[in-house]
């Protein structure tokens, strides 16, 4: 069984927790320290897909977050099969920017698939979560596999987000 390599990107505004999600997924750790990613950081993890026992080598591109002054370098997204588009549940504007990120990704990679991760669920009260999830649902787009609430700190749904994305990438 040959290992297939796939490039995936994490896209979102700055400080929404992209790097934390990757660190949680790849290294299994979480740190409160905030470090801005400059340019891009690349990590790699081999994911074993259960039903087919297929192996997929995820090359994860942690892309510098979008700030007011700087848009994401589109070239970094090129050639990606999948993306996790991340928003910060505690900051509404980051959620407002999600459609723009999604559009950018599918423009660059029309055949790609994506998962929307609403991150930092640990600092949001439960009753608000369901409401926020309803408000930010991109289920209408067939290329968006699902919208999922995550927490890198509490390790909520992090592996699931990556694994489901990986599974859908192999299918596509």
């Amino acid at each position: 069984m040959s290992t297939v390599s796939k490039k995936i990107c994490l896209i979102g505004d700055f400080s929404v927790g992209k790097t934390s999600l990757i660190r949680r997924f790849v290294e299994g750790v979480f740190s409160e320290k905030y470090l801005t990613t400059i340019g891009t950081k690349i990590s790699r993890k081999v994911v074993n897909l259960k039903p087919s026992s297929k192996e997929i080598d995820l090359i994860i591109w942690d892309i510098e977050g979008r700030t007011k002054f700087k848009s994401i370098v589109p070239n970094y997204i090129k050639g990606a099969t999948g993306a996790i588009i991340v928003g910060d549940l505690s900051r509404q504007e980051t959620l407002d920017h999600l459609p723009a990120h999604i559009e950018l990704f599918f423009q660059t990679n029309p055949k790609g698939v994506a998962i929307v991760a609403l991150n930092k669920s640990d600092i949001i009260e439960k009753h608000k979560l369901t409401k926020l999830l309803e408000l930010n649902n991109f289920g209408s787009n067939s290329q968006i596999i699902k919208t999922i609430v995550t927490s890198a700190k509490n390790n909520t749904n992090v592996d699931r987000a990556f694994t489901e994305l990986a599974e859908n990438m192999v299918d596509s």
Binding site: S5, K7, G39, T40, I42, S43, R44, I59, V73, Y76
Partner: peptide
């Protein structure tokens, strides 16, 4: 670590 080197080189090139 070829995957990472390749990724990083690509990123640098893109940049």
């Amino acid at each position: 670590e070829s995957d990472l080197v390749a990724g990083m080189l690509t990123a640098i090139r893109s940049f």
